[in-house]
Structures are given as C-alpha cells and as structure tokens.
Design a protein around this nucleic acid. Structure first.
Lengths: 269, 269
DNA sequence: TTACAGGCTCCAGTAACGGGAGAGTCAACA
DNA sequence: TGTTGACTCTCCCGTTACTGGAGCCTGTAA
C-alpha cells in the first residue's frame, strides 16, 4: 500500500489531482484510515491510474473517463467513445487550422505592407508585372461596394488567395455612380463560378505609383501618374489597376493616412 | 444610442457577454443611466465590438484583447501579438494532431483485431505474405523484455508505423532466458539507427495459426503448427514470426483470454 | 519530546461566459 | 393614470480540471 505521496511519484499525478480524482470517484483509494483520513493505494490502482492518464492524454473529459472506467475493460469495448472523440478532435483541428491560416494571412499582409512602406519612393515608377491567376467579380455601380466582391471571393477561395486585393477599372474616365470595375484577388488555383471569374491576368510593362493616404485623395495621385504617362506619350491599356497594399486591416480599421494603394497603368510596348 | 438588447443584436454578442465585457473594462458602454443603471452604446462601440470579435475569433484571451485595445489601433502595431498567438496555435495544432494520430491508431488496431477475430477459423492455414519494410530491435534475453524494443521503435517511428507489432524468433528451439529475438514493426519509411534496423522483410509462402488466449499458452499452438509442418514435410526458415493481432491495448490491458497472436513459419517452396 | 515532512479539509481562483432569481424600468395601450 | 409585458439590473452559482494556500492533524526519526 502506498501513501498518497508515494502513489503520486509512481503515477506522475500530483497529490492534488489524486485527491480530486478521489472526490470525483474516478480513482478511489484502496483504503482510507478512519482515524487520520489518510488515503492508501494498492498495486492495482497503479494500473487504473495509467488508464486514466492514457485517456486524459487522448483529451477525454473526466466525465467520459468515469463512464468508461465504470463499464469497460477492453480497448475494443470503447471504440464508440474513441470514434466520438476523434470527431471532436477533428473539429478542433479544423478550427485551429483556420485560425492559423487567418493569422498567417494577416501577418504576411502587414509585413509586406511594412516593406512597401519602407522601400517605396512614392514616385512614379516603371516596372514589369508578372502574369498571375486571379479570381474576380465584375461589378457595376459605386466603388464603395467593392467590399462585397472581395468578401465573396474570400469566402470561396479563402485558402488559395496568394496576393493583395486589387480593383480593375474598365472605365477610361472616372465615374462616380455607374462605374464598371472588378474586385479581384490573386489565387493559386480555382475554377470559375457564375459570379466569380478565375483566369490569368496578363503581365507586362506598367507605370505605377504608390499612393499614401485615404482613398478620397487618390485623385491627386491619378493626376500625377497620368501627367507622367502623357509626358512619356505612353499608350494605356484598360483595365487599370489599384492594388490595396495596406487598407483597413482585418482587425483594426487603422488610420486612412497610412493606407497604401498602388495605381498601375499597363502600357503598350 | 442603443440599449444593450439592441446592441446585442447588432454585434451578435449576447447580453451576458456584453455585461461581462463591461465588467472587464473591455467594452464599456458609452453612457450609463445613473438612475436605472441601464447601459447605452453608441455607433462607435460597434466598431470596437467588431475588433473584439475578430480577436476572439483568432483565439486571443480577453486579457490580451484588453491590452491590445488599450495600446494599439492598427494591425501592423500588433504583429508581435499575432506572432505569439500563431506560436501558441501551432502548439495546440501539434498536440491535437498527435492525439488524432493516436486515436486513429487505436481505432484501426482494434477494428482489425475484431475482423481477425470474426473471420479466423483458428486452424492452421497456408498463405502468402507480402514483403514489407520493418523497423526492428534485435535483443537477447527474456521475451518479456520485448516491450522495451517496441517502445523504442514507437518513439522513433511513431508516425510511420503501418502494421502490427511482431516478434522475430531467431532460435530454432524455445529458450527461456537467453533467447535471440527481434521486436519489430512494419513502417512506411525510415532509416536505420545504431539500435534500430530498418530493412525489408521478405515475403513468401508461410504456414500460420492464430492463437487465442494468454501468451503462456502459446506453446500449445506451437505444437499444433509444428505438427502440421512435420506432417507436410515443409522446410522451415528462421526467423519465425509472432504477430500481435490483439494484445494488451493502448488503454486497457484487456483480458488475456481475448489476446490474438498469429504464429507464422516461413516455408521453402 | 520535538522537529519536520507529509497528510487532511476547506476555501478561493482560473477563463469566459450561461442560467436563473428577484427586483427595478421602459413603452405602449386601455 | 394604471397596467401589462418586455427589457434590464445586480448577484450568485455552475462549468472544467485542476492549483495554491491556510490552518490543522499525523507519522516518524533523532
């Protein structure tokens, strides 16, 4: 017979835990001294303690364990419990995987925005864009409604998004209320649906300018980039692009003064 | 200004939760009626509630959230928090993945044992064994010490085990104390270490008998299978094998009367 | 006999709420 | 103006699987 302290060392369960398991009728001492109330455990309880530990390691609740111990004595008897438990673990795994993906996305996003912030000259640049696969929702109306498009894409292709949200402008002039535009996101893979078109967006030479500040001020940056294009006598191809390097965050809205938006005009070579 | 009930509907947080967040100074009502104690929230609190919900969805604790809300207002400010949180989520994922793997292993094991139990005639059979990759620990001494070998393999190759534990007997006669045997497990892949040898175990024709009952009684089944082999005048190749179809379970020791052990003698053709 | 390790019970606290009791408040309707 | 019923308030308990601590008792060795 072991005292509670000895039994604790043998089983690796804390004294507190053993007392608690006793109270819960999960692991009852073999003998209790009537005078002193001291708990004593015999050899056979070591095995019970091992079983409990195993089941706890499989994340079973003490309630489940009590039930299992009361009714069963062979692994094959508890296949149902194991299957149920597996289900519940799978659900937790799924939930945590989603959280992990969201965290990664936010971290990547903000890190990239920081890099862009630190490296940009905020002057008009000429650069080469790669061809990329995008998922897009063509819309007509106010620009402010583009959020719906992005969230549709997010829901369908959440896991496959591999770049920053973009708006493609199909109008050659600025339109307030009846604009023709497409909300889109670079994706790794995916197939088109009724609403969302998945396709390649061709790369090529472009003239780009990173705009810092609220979206209301985008006009000034557009003037600047158009002046540049005119001076160089470049021929512009629709659609033009707005890449949201940093906008309202996933968590905080953030300060619009810090928003970064890259305006890209594809030009013919 | 919204009453707590209205605000609850807008934000999707329960009234109880809102009161709790108030108590914790995480989401304090805009105004509290001094007479009635009624809580009133204005428009701007909706945004705060959204931020809190987002952070809760990322599994942040309320303590973290309180800190974040008090000090920050942009996603890029909380990159450290996000990174830490990512770490903690990864750990949980890892833990649950391990649990899931264990559960799967037990379930598979017991299910297969059940099938073997229901389908076996418990007579000597002749069959063809496939070649398989195994990880084995060669040992010398008492059979009862094979457990050490199995646990060594389990620790190293846990994830890659793809079959039931086996004992290979290199002695041609039964030895009590100085037996030469190898504890091994089929694995999907792996490389040898000092102690563990990973290699192919060749298949071929074999004579097999499933023994039901405690290991002490194995002798009787050995007699039976040897009688059969002698009668057929087969030539036996060492090592012979013992496959533990059902032994002491991962959780319960189980009843030795229900243990299933397949004895396999490889025979020359 | 004394010291001290080890044991006992009982209470509080954890995290993030949910349930419920008992009492007060608000708005509409008769 | 009174009443009804929905809404809100505070306060307390319960959840899960323990841990920590206070205050007291017991066992054993010096």
């Amino acid at each position: 017979m072991f005292s509670i302290g000895e039994f604790s060392k043998i089983t690796g369960l804390s004294v507190k835990t053993l007392r608690f398991y006793h109270e819960q009728n999960i692991l009852v001492p073999t003998h209790i001294d009537e005078q002193s109330g001291y708990r004593y455990y015999n050899e056979s309880k070591v095995e019970t303690a091992r079983v409990i530990t195993q089941l706890r390691n499989l994340d079973f609740s003490l309630n489940d364990i009590a039930e299992i111990l009361a009714q069963h004595e062979d692994d094959s008897d508890i296949l149902d419990y194991l299957a149920t438990q597996k289900e519940s673990i799978q659900q937790k795994l799924k939930a945590y995987r989603e959280i992990s993906a969201s965290l990664n996305q936010i971290i990547t996003q903000e890190t990239e925005a920081r890099i862009a912030m630190n490296h940009s000259t905020f002057e008009v640049e000429e650069k080469q864009l790669e061809t990329m696969l995008i998922a897009g929702v063509r819309m007509r109306g106010k620009y402010s409604e583009c959020g719906k498009g992005f969230s549709q894409i997010g829901k369908k292709f959440g896991r496959h998004i591999c770049g920053k949200p973009m708006l493609l402008h199909y109008d050659t002039q600025y339109k307030e209320n009846d604009a023709d535009f497409e909300a889109c996101m670079p994706v790794r893979k995916g197939t088109s649906t009724d609403i969302i078109s998945v396709r390649e967006l061709l790369g090529g030479k472009c003239v780009a300018l990173i705009h810092k500040g609220p979206y209301e001020d985008l006009g000034r940056s557009y003037e600047k980039i158009i002046a540049y294009v005119n001076e160089k006598e470049y021929e512009i191809e629709v659609p033009s692009r707005e890449v949201y390097i940093k906008g309202p965050g996933m968590i905080f809205r953030g300060n619009p003064k810090n928003y970064l938006t890259e305006i890209q005009f594809m030009v013919k070579e």
